[in-house]
Amino acid sequence: MRIGYARVSTADQSLDLQLDALNADGCERIYTEKASGAKDDRAELAKALDSLRPGDVFVVYKLDRLARSTLKLISTLDDIKAKGAEFVSLSDKIDTTTAAGKALFGMLAVFAEFERNVIVERTKAGLAASRARGRSGGRPKTDRKKVAQALKLYDSKAHTVAEITDMTGVTKATLYRAVRERESAE
């Protein structure tokens, strides 16, 4: 089965061009959505991907209708491949049902991995530069005395969590973490 997916970013944009192309391609089922490509929680895309079965072909008008970043695109294409389905982007002339399309997909995967590696390298270099300037990363050190005081106030049930955080300077997350750690130690 050929399953199509069409998306526009705003409600005032038209899906007509994409729908015409998907229908002309022979898509038997088409999912449509009016949502930003940057959103990861696109309901219709999730439904379309969930409907895929081995042998199906997932069709989009253009790659940017599916994902805004290379990493998200490759992740989505990996999901399609894992379901035993193929992928076609009509405007970009990518068709993984052909040898050339599979090769192009492989090259996209290489570039996505390269992009991930460059991000990791930049992050490591930035952390090293910060350490060289005397800065340390990570969560700030917690003042044990303040946490102990916050726990006493919490146990007294005389104050709200918001009041305890205001009085002690201990964040709500730190207070709840200390409560959980204490309960699991008991």
Rank of each mutant, 00 (worst) to 15 (best):
F87R: 05
V88E: 10
V88Y: 11
D92I: 00
K93E: 11
D95Q: 04
T96W: 04
T97W: 13
T97G: 13
T97I: 00
T97Y: 12
T98V: 00
A99V: 03
A100D: 04
A103E: 00
L104K: 12
L104V: 07
L104G: 03
F105I: 02
F105M: 13
G106C: 06
M107A: 07
L108H: 10
L108I: 08
A109W: 03
V110Q: 14
A112I: 01
E113V: 02
F114W: 10
V118W: 11
V118A: 11
V118T: 10
I119H: 13
E121V: 01
T123L: 11
K124A: 14
K124S: 13
G126P: 02
G126Y: 06
L127N: 03
A128E: 09
A128D: 05
A128V: 02
A129G: 08
A129W: 04
R133W: 03
G134Q: 07
R135K: 15
R135D: 03
G137E: 02
G137Q: 07
G138D: 01
R139H: 09
P140S: 10
P140G: 11
K141I: 00
V147A: 04
Q149T: 11
A150Y: 13
L151P: 04
L153I: 10
L153M: 15
Y154A: 05
Y154P: 04
S156H: 12
S156V: 01
K157A: 07
K157M: 09
H159Y: 15
H159G: 03
T160L: 11
